[in-house]
Amino acid sequence: MDNALFEYLVRLGDDSLILGHRLSEWCGHGPILEEDIAMTNIALDLVGQTTSILKYAGEVEGKGRTEDDLAFLRYEREYRNTLLVEQPNGDFGVTMMRQFLFDAFRKPLFEQLVNSSDAQIAAIAAKSLKETKYHFKHSAEWVIRLGDGTEESHERVQNALNDLWRYTDEMFFTDEVDRDLESRGITFSMEDLKNTWQETVKSVLDQATLEIPTNGWQHDGGRKGLHSEHLGYILAELQYMQRAYPGMEW
């Protein structure tokens, strides 16, 4: 089995799986009906992308695990999502800020991956990129509206940014897996990705009149399976049905 490729796909798939689940928690709780629908639509796209990614991961692994097995039947330490996506929803401003920081990473990532030497990754990226452009536009516009909005909305999204900033560096985590895949033309420069992300984030936050925190401390661990306490609660809910009724389908 191609261990590096499997590991990479799980990282890619777990980010969208966990963020998709977080967004789905807004279902029926959105601040306005249109945003309730928007967040659940985006959740659906993310979970759909996860389906394609984890399905392929299962094929690469070659042990007969399906996308459902991977999504519902792994233990916490086997999840490889970044800590950013498992952070709680907070208020609408927190959710939009988390989404924006992620979309600003995911969009250029897929723009790179459409040129992957791995045909299946290129296909998934081309499909997902079209959706991600909508997500990015949605979250970036909200960050600007809220940041450059009322005193209260400004304060709330600034606080959200201050809280979430320490989880952003981890998206650019690089180890031997990335170096191996990059040498094979399957993935591309994380350095370029980070530069693009920084430019986008700076430009949007400037428009939003928000200040990038200067505190340099950054968390990591998610890519190695070391998560915050939040992931356990997410998995308890996500996996409940499959654990209680193994093999259940509908």
Binding site: E34, E35, I37, A38, N41, I42, L44, D45, E131, Y134, K137, H138
Partner: peptide, 13 residues
Amino acid sequence: MISQFGSTACKAH
């Protein structure tokens, strides 16, 4: 436009 996201993923409102 009322919302970029509508009753299904492929529609806006």
